[in-house]
């Protein structure tokens, strides 16, 4: 097991390097000159050139890339142009918001998505199945932002139950934290619940048709035990894969949701930084997101090994 972990992390290093290089190149291919924007409308060419020299933008791209990577390796993500702050600090401040949002949405998605999928599969071809699948379809077809707006109109404006914007840190007040996040988290989760339910259902149907389920029935195993012990455990591989993918989607989805609910998270930072051509911040946050995806994938592989003896013993 330890060997597997070490191996997967070693494998991830080149992947992360590629992520870093791609992030850097992407930023330098985007139109717009940071120096011009920083200098402001009134600036003359001389001061723009000066800023460019200060930032090192006058050097060839490969040299800039090299410096960036060398600094990264030493834990230095650079300084933000718009915030007068180290990128690492700016990210560190906002990370809890995005993590809270994504994790809360994930915690809502998992039980509901799995339960709906299993229920639909067990009652396949009945009205229960149809009802769950129609709901799931609605969940995946209606755009996030639209649900968000409807939800704000209902729960914040009309009923006044929940704040429509803003974030309360967890260490200030738990109920405030939850109130500030529950609405965006549910909105974010709706799509994923529908998606997870559909995937779980099809995985479950597949397993329920397997010979070993018939064997269990032939032994006299009760239906509930068959579903939980014999069938669901065999769908875990697929459920874990989908769950990992969903976690990635949730992180991506928070970028949009943070805009709508004015949550000061990574997503908002990224959008602001792109607007301001604050390339150190853009690079830093993109890199962080990329690392998050790589990390999630390692996690999935490790969970595989845990749930499936065939992987574990290889």
């Amino acid at each position: 097991m330890l060997k597997l972990i070490a191996f997967r992390i070693a494998q991830a290093i080149p992947v992360m390097l590629v992520v870093a290089v791609l992030t850097f190149l992407l930023m330098h291919l985007l139109p717009g000159d940071p120096a011009t924007i920083i200098a402001g409308d009134q600036a003359d060419q001389a001061s723009i050139d000066q800023i460019r020299r200060d930032l090192g933008l006058d050097r060839p791209v490969p040299v800039q890339l090299w410096h960036w990577i060398v600094n990264l390796a030493q834990g230095d993500f650079g300084r933000s142009l718009m915030l007068n702050q180290a990128v690492a600090d700016a990210v560190k401040e906002r990370l809890p918001v995005t993590l809270s949002l994504a994790m809360l949405a994930f915690a809502i998605t998992l039980p509901f998505g799995i339960a709906f999928g299993v229920i639909a599969a067990v009652w396949r071809d009945t009205w229960v199945d149809s009802a769950v699948m129609i709901l799931a379809l609605v969940g995946v077809s209606v755009p996030n932002f639209w649900i968000a707006i409807l939800s704000v109109i209902l729960f914040s404006v009309t009923l006044g139950w929940l704040p429509s914007a803003g974030y309360v840190p967890l260490h200030d007040s738990f109920s405030g934290w939850l109130a500030s996040l529950i609405q965006p988290a549910v909105v974010l989760a709706l799509f994923q619940i529908g998606y997870l339910a559909r995937m779980t259902r099809s995985a479950m149907l597949d397993v329920l048709d397997q010979d070993y389920i018939r064997t269990a029935r032939a032994k006299g195993v009760a239906v509930n035990t068959i579903i939980v012990k014999h069938a669901f455990r065999n769908t875990l591989m697929q459920v874990v894969t989908v769950a990992g993918y969903i976690l990635s989607l949730l992180i991506g989805g928070s970028v949009v949701i943070e805009q709508i609910f004015a949550l000061p998270g990574i997503g908002r930072l990224l959008v602001q930084a792109i607007m301001a051509r604050d390339y150190p911040v853009v690079q830093g946050t993109m890199l962080l997101l990329g690392f998050a995806f790589v990390f999630i994938n390692i996690l999935i592989d490790l969970i595989y090994a845990y749930v499936d003896p065939r992987v574990r013993y290889d």
Binding site: Q210, D211, Y212, R214, T215, A216, R217, A218, K219, G220, V221, A222, K229, H230, R233, N234, L236, V307, D308, P309, R310
Partner: peptide, 24 residues
């Protein structure tokens, strides 16, 4: 019926590869 299955009447199947649960 469930009480009879496995206790009074038992059954084995053609394909031993797929008739056993892979995760147990």
């Amino acid at each position: 019926m469930r009480e009879i299955r496995g206790r009074d009447i038992a059954m084995i199947f053609q394909d031993p590869m797929h008739s056993l649960n892979p995760v147990l």
